[in-house]
Write a protein that binds this DNA or RNA. Structure first.
Length: 975
DNA sequence: CCTGAGCCTAAG
DNA sequence: CATCGCTTAGGCTCAGG
């Protein structure tokens, strides 16, 4: 066994919790060995350790090798390794020990999932690693459990990758040949599975340890396949191991088709048909865009969708350009800024119908100036991303459906996207602009658009300036045409951003318009007067509509700047359009930039700084159950969290936005898999402390989704935003040395739970290794530790040392770290309660003293409240806030003596009505509220045991029963 | 009057 | 077959203290 194998061992030891250590029951080559994707996840996994049995049936050898390798690691690596086995379990303090009753009660266990648990054979049960959590306690479902497993595997793959980078490649990343590939290795291979695993993860790929219905892959590597397997894998890209080896040797991902193992017709690319003839009209792009079913439930849906979405590309390109801009200035330290007094010439440079031109040029068989061309995926309801000027002369517009465009222009030719080429040509443009020494600042606006700023040094001769600008512009245009081999840019130039933009508009296509020689306002007015309102930057259809309907007289058909100027005033504009927009429009009317647009010139770093990050998917969203949506949310959150982690950012606020099919809209809209007509809803929530933890964020979003109460089948779009991003503070885990330590690199600290999370096979060796190095080894806990709620944990932490004394100390302030781990809803409750308890601490004590008397004299509390008698108000929930307040007060006042039976009956009745009225989400909310309230009391006033027990019992028995018995909710959510 | 949530708008 | 309707930032409105 070598180090590679240890890496494999460490990175996959948790794959199969039920078989470690484990004697394989099968040969890897036999057809049953790996299992089919349909057989469910658990019992079909190939045990990652099965190969050890070929070495020796005992674990002695493993231990020896392991000890040797452990001893070669330095302290930091060892600790990191151990820590990497532990990830905090996602906690959801809802309804006591049912951590995710929000799912559990919704529709009962997913039958497919529960069968997945059954194959755990009894003989395996004892040998399972300690890390394996018992089902139904820590995870909402097996789906989540496996998601967690997968996460851990990736986490450790990343660790191993780093390790190898550091040791073998000077810390440099290996070239990410297999980026975006999710690869599964099937059966016996040469090089073997372990080596392939290493190669794949080092080069940016993702290694799947098992195939299942839920977890799919982009490639399967195999040397040979049974005919049954060939059928099964027909829809995948199945390649020989040589694809991996050769790709690495060539330092680029080679076309998989050359290594295709299955050579049926469906797997064979059509390229051979027109060999030598690159003009393949209307054929889909051959590689990478494999024949994947577009199903939002598929784990790699997000990836495959993004790969083909023009809007996604535009957005990410833009973000990348901005980031690059900022990086460059961090690097160079200095930034030219434009102050208010500077005279500047602003060049607005923009490719002409960028996508259409580039796609046409890379296809090399169309005449840009004669053929009507449009870039689009499909043939009918596909949107046109870009069309050339020939097509535009027929009235074809960007964003139009191909079907409608064809009605205007029957000879329209649709050509495919070529995102790679767009990027290349964009880089060329920026390179040319960089090389043009005339500019003080080059601001990226988008993939095909940039603003170049030239400061004018007190030259009053506008004619000279005009001439110079003309020359700059024409030389840029000439150069771009040469370098890109046919792409044209247009350039607008003016003294302000808005003038440059409007000049650009009139320069298009393939032209330039320099309007620097305007010496007086009347000339500017002349230039502006004929400009359409819609052409002003930041003025869209909605604002134009407002202007036309509310300001301009009816007879004005095409609202121009000239007309608006004669019919409006600043006062009128601000009153009709809002203060900011009104002021902006008013400034534009005189050709001046508004305050907001100026910011890009005055403080571009601030302008380009990232303030939020989000993922929106409003296409192909079709779910049946809330579980599928939960899984989807998890994946999206994963995506977002890994992004902000890379950027070193944390978020204090997350927002969920959904699109829900309008009641009257058809189930399937005209556009294939489109969202159709929808209503939009959003919900934001805050964390006590900014976080980048996917567990916290995903939980919060899932909770928000339940609040929005959208039936899964009606969901058509989903967006998750992380707002108000800030730099993650560098955590200092160690106390600073009193004599001023020289060490600046923080040493990793062994987390207490990490050691216990290690698989048993590793535990003793690691313990030995740690003790050899005098690193304190945590004691094994006596029994299996129950995962407690954060509140309990907090209580334990706070009272751990004083529990025996009987002294009940109340904290004077809230622990922010602890608070940050709670859902924001509950945080708010606790903060409020904290304030209340602080005020009434003495009275609580008094109550406790007189507990016995109180019990004797207890009366229905709820019944004595006035709100109680307005139970109808209560039931319609027109004032949910009041209801919550009432319940809170009810618990507060009865927490030591317990609720009165009459009150409970009344309350029961209310909840049942809510549940039967399709408002189960509100029952859930109330349950959460009550749960947190009780937890809270248990923390700050722990002596009132008896009453609280009664309450908790009620919560557990009655509430859960009501939630589970709800017929409406499952009907809506689990069709 | 200030603040924040939940919309809307715009851009490429 | 279809088809890939994103992402970020600012502004408006209204409710609540």
């Amino acid at each position: 066994m070598n180090e590679d194998e240890l890496a494999e061992l460490l990175s996959s030891s948790e794959t199969n919790p039920s078989s470690f250590p484990h004697t394989p029951r099968r040969q890897a080559a036999s057809p049953e060995a790996v299992g089919s994707p349909d057989n469910g996840a658990l019992h079909t996994q190939e045990s990652p350790l099965s190969h050890y049995s070929t070495l020796n049936d005992t674990t002695a050898l493993v231990h020896t090798q392991q000890q040797r390798i452990l001893s070669t690691l330095d302290d930091d690596s060892l600790l990191q390794l151990v820590n990497s086995f532990h990830r905090p379990v996602e906690r959801q303090p809802i309804l006591g020990d049912e951590p995710d009753s929000g799912v559990g009660w919704a529709g009962g266990a997913d039958p497919a999932l529960s069968t997945a648990s059954s194959p755990q054979s009894p003989e395996d049960a004892d040998s399972g690693p300690a890390v394996s959590p018992p089902p139904n306690t820590d995870y909402a479902s097996y789906g989540e459990y496996f998601a967690h497993k997968k996460n851990q595997q990736q986490h450790r793959d990343a660790y191993v990758k780093r390790l190898y980078q550091d040791t073998l490649n000077n810390g440099q990343e290996f070239s990410p040949i297999f980026k975006d590939c999710i690869i599964y290795v099937n059966g016996r291979t040469d090089p073997d599975r372990l080596q392939l695993h290493q190669k794949i993860i080092l080069h940016g790929g993702q290694f799947m340890h098992f195939l299942s219905g839920k977890t799919s892959v982009t490639h399967i590597v195999a040397s040979n396949l049974t005919s049954k397997k060939k059928l099964e894998f027909a829809k995948y890209k199945v390649v020989t191991p040589a694809w991996i080896v050769d790709s690495i040797a060539a330092d680029k991902r080679l076309p998989w088709q050359k290594y295709a193992l299955i050579t049926g017709d469906e797997a064979q690319p059509k390229l051979t048909l027109n060999n030598g003839n690159p003009q393949r009209k209307d054929s889909p792009p051959s590689d990478s865009a494999a024949t994947f079913t577009l199903d939002c439930k598929h784990p790699s849906f997000l990836e495959s969708f993004f790969a083909k979405s023009r809007l996604h590309h535009l957005s990410t390109w833009k973000a990348d350009l901005r980031a690059h801009f900022s990086d460059k200035f961090v690097e160079h330290g200095k930034l030219q800024r434009v102050s208010e007094d500077d005279n500047v010439a602003i060049f607005h440079v923009d490719f002409d119908c960028f996508f259409a031109t580039v796609s046409a040029l890379s296809n090399n068989c169309y005449n840009l100036h004669k053929d009507a061309l449009a870039v689009a995926h499909g043939t009918s309801t596909s949107e046109i991303a870009s069309c050339n000027y020939v097509a535009r002369s027929f009235g074809v517009k960007n964003g139009m459906w191909v079907r409608s465009a064809r009605r205007l222009c029957p000879q329209l030719i649709c050509i495919p996207y070529n995102f790679e080429q767009y990027e290349i040509n964009s880089k060329l443009l920026y390179q040319i602009l960089d090389e043009t020494s005339s500019f003080d600042m080059i601001l990226p606006l988008s993939i095909d658009e940039a603003i170049c700023v030239k400061k004018l040094h007190s030259s009053p001769h506008f004619d000279e300036v005009q001439t110079e600008c003309e020359q700059i512009a024409s030389s840029i245009r000439q150069r771009v045409l040469e370098v890109t081999g046919g792409c044209t840019v247009s350039i607008g130039c003016g003294a302000s951003l808005v003038c440059a933009r409007l000049a650009l508009k009139s320069a298009k296509p393939d032209g330039q318009c320099i309007v620097m020689n305007m010496t007086d306002q009347s000339q500017i007015d002349d230039f502006l007067s004929g400009v359409h309102l819609k052409d002003l930057p930041g003025i869209g259809a909605s604002i134009v509509d407002k202007v036309v309907r509310q300001i301009l007289p009816e007879y004005v058909k095409v609202p121009t700047i000239g007309e608006l100027k004669t019919h409006s005033s600043l006062q009128l504009l601000t009153s009709k359009l809002g203060v900011r927009t009104g002021r902006k429009v008013h400034l534009f009317l005189s050709g001046k930039d508004d305050e907001e647009s100026c910011r890009i010139l005055r403080n571009p770093i601030d302008f380009f700084a990232r303030k939020s990050i989000s993922v929106d998917i409003n296409y192909a969203i079709r779910f049946d159950t809330i579980h599928e949506i939960d899984d989807f949310i998890s994946r999206v959150c994963d995506h977002l969290c890994s992004k902000i982690m890379d950027l070193g950012l944390v978020t204090p606020q997350v927002t969920l936005k959904i699109l829900r099919r309008c009641a009257h809209a058809p189930i399937e809209p005209a556009k294939y898999l489109g969202c159709g007509e929808c209503d939009s809803f959003s919900r934001s929530s805050r964390f006590g402390l900014p976080t980048d933890q996917v567990g916290l964020i995903a939980t919060e979003i899932k909770s928000s989704f339940r609040m929005l109460a959208c039936p899964p089948a009606d969901l058509r779009g989903l967006a998750i935003q992380l707002n108000q991003l800030e730099k993650k503070a560098i955590q200092i885990n160690q106390q600073r040395l009193p004599f001023g330590g020289l060490s600046t690199i923080p040493k990793p600290v062994l987390k207490p739970d990490s050691f216990n999370s290690l698989p048993p096979i590793l535990k003793e060796d690691v313990r030995a290794e740690l003790s050899k190095r005098r690193i304190e080894v945590p004691q094994s806990p006596a029994g299996k530790r129950k995962i407690s709620s954060p509140v309990k944990e907090y209580w334990d932490r706070f009272h751990g040392k004083q529990q025996g004394t009987g002294e009940q100390k109340l904290p004077s302030s809230l622990d922010e770290d602890f608070m940050s781990h709670l859902p924001s809803q509950i945080q708010r409750e606790i903060r409020r309660d904290h304030a209340i308890v602080k005020k009434t601490r003495s009275s609580v004590r008094k109550n406790l003293v007189h507990k016995e008397e109180i019990v004797e004299t207890r009366k229905p509390w709820l019944e004595t409240r006035s709100t109680l008698n307005e139970i109808d108000t209560f039931q319609t929930l027109t004032r949910p806030r009041e209801v919550c307040t009432l319940i809170g007060a009810w618990i507060d006042q009865t927490v030591s003596i317990g609720p009165h039976k009459d009150d409970l009956d009344l309350f029961d009745n209310y909840l049942k009505k809510l549940a039967s009225k399709n408002r189960t989400h509100q029952v859930l909310l109330i349950a959460k509220l009550m749960s947190s309230r009780l937890e809270y009391h248990s923390t700050f006033a722990p002596s009132n045991q008896r009453g609280r027990q009664e309450w908790e019992e009620y919560l557990l028995r009655r509430m859960t029963a009501i939630l589970n018995s709800s017929t409406k909710y499952p009907r809506v959510f689990d069709i």
